[in-house]
Simulated scan of single mutants.
Amino acid sequence: MAYLELLKQAEAFHLLTDEALSVIETFCSHRQLQHGERLFKEGDAAVHLWVVMEGVIDLRFDLPGRETSPESTLSSVTKNNIIGWSSLIPPYHYKLSAYCDSLQCGMLMIDAQKLLAYLKENPKTGYQVFSAMLRVVGRRFERLQESAGETSPVLDKTNARTTTYGIPAGTREVMVSHEFLEQTDVFKSLTDAQLSSIRKNADVIDFKKDDRIFAQGDSATHVWIVREGEVRLQAETIENEGLNGGPLMSFMSQAHAFGWTCFVPPYQYRLSGYCDSRWCSLIRLNRIDLRRIFEDDFAIGFHVMSFLMEAVGRQFVQYQDEVARSRGIEMMNHW
């Protein structure tokens, strides 16, 4: 069976050249399922990336000792959409079970190891595929939040201290060293020449304690790296807006990078960021500048997008587990 035309329509591959698609086609095979048949189960080794060719696939959490049912479906995936992206990021295990929910399902199966090896050898294609995959994961993250009844609160952005937020006076001309950039996980394996292209587009901005760096729901325009001090990232509601002691998610210390949602739909900060120490000095990298760097040197782009796939994938799985746990408890309470 020829798979080239199918790959062209798939959400992760539609921007690739015919030459690249022809190579990926050699990694493909086909599987047919009937209604109710399981494609893979949670915890299985993720050895394939899948494209839905026909039908509907339900992604479900299976409860111990119970038969599967549509009630445990977290999302449904239709034609030309991707499932099994866990095959591209460690630890390479499927996080949910997949079942055919239509009369029959046709699945394009792609050998994930061969695909990854090809993407590493061809960083332009790797950058394009992982950028597309980030958009896929971002949209599904957003839909999962909507299905769980969660939306970002509308915050009153006049209350929190924003003394330096967005004000040029807070920005300083400070040389960012290669050595410092190498301390960040995302940049540590880049060459000096590659680090130089990042460094040239960096500026430094200072904040005082409890100054807000950005608000939950703001348009995500920058990636940030902590140069000095400590930053807290927290989910906010109208009631706890700006308060230290609300539902904290994490703290960022020296050389930690954050704000990567500027590359993930809907391109908004999912948490609010505050200076949590007496003062904070942050490196700021504009999303547009970074995109240009990535497209000038696809090796950098692929490296960063691979890092982001792992980071965003972990966050998605954590949230997915929370939703599954909550729904599982609700289901058991009705038994």
Rank of each mutant, 00 (worst) to 15 (best):
H93P: 05
I329R: 12
A169R: 14
L7A: 00
I205G: 00
I57R: 04
I89D: 03
L285V: 06
R232L: 07
D101N: 07
A112L: 03
V51A: 12
T171G: 01
L282R: 09
E230D: 11
D156W: 04
I89P: 00
E310C: 10
T17M: 03
I83C: 01
S75L: 15
F214P: 01
P91T: 06
R140G: 05
V304Y: 06
K8F: 01
Y269A: 02
A10L: 00
Q194A: 00
V304F: 01
V312L: 01
A12E: 11
W260E: 13
V304T: 02
W50Y: 14
Y269I: 11
D276V: 00
E71D: 10
R38C: 15
Q128K: 01
S147P: 03
L59F: 08
S147V: 02
P265Y: 10
Q104D: 14
I110S: 07
L63T: 04
L49M: 15
Y274I: 01
G245P: 10
R60N: 13
V136D: 14
D62K: 03
H178S: 05
G138V: 00
Y267A: 00
S326G: 06
V323K: 10
H178L: 13
D156S: 10
P247R: 14
D62E: 14
N201C: 10
R60S: 13
L181Y: 08
R199L: 02
A257R: 12
T78E: 11
V52R: 06
A220K: 02
R60W: 02
S97C: 05
H35R: 03
L59H: 01
F61T: 00
R38I: 13
L16S: 02
K208P: 02
H334R: 15
N81D: 08
V304D: 02
G170M: 04
F61M: 09
T78K: 15
G328M: 02
W335E: 04
P70K: 08
S189G: 09
L74Q: 13
A117I: 15
R287N: 03
K124G: 12
R227Q: 10
